[in-house]
């Protein structure tokens, strides 16, 4: 039991002070980015004020994909090196990623209504984000359906890696199928096509959400480790 907790112990010592720091950084960045984007940045010459939804929509879109990639990496580590903390990390990240995907879908829909004239369009990017959201739900459901935690961790890791291989294929196929969403405008060859005055608040919000993810992840993981300790203590109590 002690060797099992050896690594988590170091993690717990680190996260005890790192989680609050990231939380404060997240709140600070969001406190700067949100008013900057929502009030002090210019309105778009075509979209008008609705462009401000982007400051919530784009960061959550980025990180919902980023979090899945993180879960894939953690699953790989958990599967190959049987690292218990990696399993905990993958599980702890999933609800956060699912929430980000949901926020991305909802804000996208709110933006689409005035701009495209429809709440929902079966477009490539919308559909692949919806598929990502459903994959998150399946992953979470698998975790909670299997009682043996260690087995659940391995099986969920396999599912996560299969999803990692499949996501680009799903994305490619739905892009081929139908596309209305504007193509990438920041990370593209030939430089960004977005106005520099919008980049500041966008990156502040993106940084804020990243710090928020880090803080929530560590808090979730700490909760999971504490829960295991309580269970272990209860088992020891039962033996005595």
């Amino acid at each position: 039991m002690l060797t099992y907790l050896a690594n988590p112990a170091r993690f717990m010592a680190f996260s005890a002070w790192a989680a609050p720091i990231f939380l404060v950084a997240a709140l600070a960045l969001l406190a700067i980015g949100a008013p900057w984007g929502l009030f002090y940045s210019p309105a778009d010459y075509q979209q008008g004020e609705t462009v401000r939804i982007m400051y919530l929509h784009v960061p959550t879109a980025w990180w919902s994909m980023g979090i899945y990639a993180f879960m894939g990496a953690a699953s790989f580590v958990g599967l190959v090196w049987r690292h218990a903390l990696a399993d905990v990390a993958a599980r702890a990240a999933a609800p956060i990623g699912a929430t980000f995907a949901a926020v991305c879908l909802i804000t996208g829909s709110l933006w689409g209504a005035p701009t495209w004239g429809t709440w929902w369009e079966w477009d490539g990017r919308l559909t692949s984000m919806l598929a990502l959201f459903v994959i998150y739900l399946g992953y979470i459901a698998l975790w909670s359906a299997i009682e043996d935690e260690e087995k659940a961790a391995r099986l969920a890791a396999i599912l996560c890696l299969v999803g990692l291989v499949n996501l680009p294929i799903i994305k490619f196929s739905v892009d081929w199928w139908s596309t209305l969403h504007q193509p990438a405008s920041i990370m593209r060859a030939g430089g960004s096509s977005i106005d520099p005055s919008m980049m500041g608040p966008l990156f502040a919000m993106a940084g804020g959400f990243l710090c928020l993810f880090a803080a929530l992840l560590m808090m979730n993981m700490r909760a999971a480790v504490f829960r295991r300790r309580v269970e272990a203590a209860r088992l020891r109590g039962a033996d005595a």
């Binding site: 598929a131 459903v134 698998l142 299997i146 087995k151 969920a156 599912l159 299969v162 196929s173």
Partner: peptide, 23 residues
């Protein structure tokens, strides 16, 4: 395979597999 140990896993399989049926 991932749901083989789950009793009444039918809905769970559907939730897991359906997004991958997209392509």
């Amino acid at each position: 395979a991932v749901t083989a140990g789950v009793k009444r896993g039918g809905v769970l399989i559907a939730l897991i597999v359906l997004p991958f049926f997209a392509p």
